[in-house]
Write a protein that binds this DNA or RNA. Structure first.
Lengths: 218, 218
DNA sequence: TAAAATTTTAAACAAATGTTTAAAACAAAA
DNA sequence: TTTTGTTTTAAACATTTGTTTAAAATTTTA
């Protein structure tokens, strides 16, 4: 019978990864690249340099391993966002920070959003609770904040639901289409990052200029 | 031996689809929904209400059928764009038309972009020639047009490569995340379309206001 | 150290996968 | 009608898939 990790905390200090960790990390990278359906148990074992049986020994099934990884990645993406919304700063600053944070995450994990979107489309039902949590937190913070700014006359009126797609969309698109872009422009990883960085700044400009009514115009 | 369609033109007039067409259409819808790896030959056969052997009889292999469909869908998405760029209208009008056309395509095939992105990431090499064609046509038209407007002082200076992600990004994001959005807001197909329509208009506003220097400000 | 528990292994399992076969059903041509 | 060519079928094929087994290797405990 598989011994499903009872004492995770114990090996925090040690440098060498446990087999369980090795498998999970390898699986994460393969899943991100090939998606759930495109990944075989043997792909994972090979990437982790481990015996095939160990995947099931530690995680019971490919599906269970996947869900665990998916939740991690989904949280990674969301928590970032939620933390920023809780900061005591202006909405304008929040949105800018959001774009910047998003950019940073995408830089280290460019395949993340495409992966999340694909797998949510494949079967989003098992994620409903997490999605709802995200929505409530988002809307709780956002809607009031927007109304306030609008009534102060410092912000253009816009539906709450449009804010996030607006902010994330054109930045994400660059990373979702990273491979396409790199192939089309025949450019290196570094050149791509430079392009993305510049694109990020354009987006920040565009969005803040559009959403927030500057004093000189008033 | 499989008889690979010799006389396509002949049955243009007839109403009932040929088996070959039935299979291709069914395959398209399944591939769009589940992706290449997530789709089995039996999924396709079932969706087309045909015997499993017929897929290979008409298309030789799952891979060949897929490539054929992929190229169709890729063209569907690109030709739209290219046609607009060839119109004798201002850049501003072109970008607006582009967003509108894009919106229309996404409305009928919401899974299209996510599908294309995923499959390009999986293996974009076989598409290099098509990508290059797209790039050249795009840049040929765009770069000169932008320079012209910038030197006239009617447009903000922006790298050519940033234009398309800017335009498509925040619109695509809404459709790429359609399932997520619908689940988060617990809304119907119709409500989603209404939201998307409104979002499209916001984007048109934002982008044209940002990119083009209006006369009153000059 | 010896015993017990845990981890790793090679091999096998049944089920699912893409594909092929060879015969049957059907349509077109003679 | 008979012959020829095409389309469809059920069944089988060899691989690959996720998973399990039972024994070996290793580590932990007593």
């Amino acid at each position: 019978m598989a011994q499903v990790n009872e004492n995770r905390e114990e090996n925090v200090a040690c440098i060498t990864q446990s087999s369980e960790e090795k498998i999970k990390e390898a699986a994460k990278s393969v899943f991100l690249k090939k998606g759930y359906a495109g990944t075989t148990a043997r792909d994972i074992a090979e990437a982790a340099n481990m015996n095939i049986a160990l995947t099931n020994y530690y995680f019971r099934s490919k599906e269970k391993l996947f869900v665990e990884i998916f939740k991690d990645l989904f949280s990674l993406y969301c928590n970032n966002t939620l933390q920023i919304f809780e900061k005591p700063i202006s909405l304008r600053e929040k949105l800018i920070e959001l774009i910047k944070a998003d950019f940073q995450v995408m830089k280290t994990e460019p395949a993340l959003v495409l992966f999340l979107m694909t797998e949510i489309q494949r079967d989003g039902s098992r994620l409903l609770p997490e999605l709802n949590k995200l929505k409530e937190l988002l809307h709780g913070h956002l809607t009031a904040h927007i109304e306030e700014e609008v009534s102060k006359g410092t912000m253009r009126k816009i539906p709450t639901e449009s804010i996030m797609p607006l902010i994330m969309g054109s930045l994400q698109f660059v990373f979702v289409g990273k491979n396409l872009t790199m192939k089309m422009y025949n450019c290196s990883e570094e050149e791509f990052n430079q392009f993305a960085e510049n694109h990020k700044n354009i987006i920040i400009d565009m969005i803040t200029e559009y959403l927030f009514i500057s004093e000189e115009v008033m």
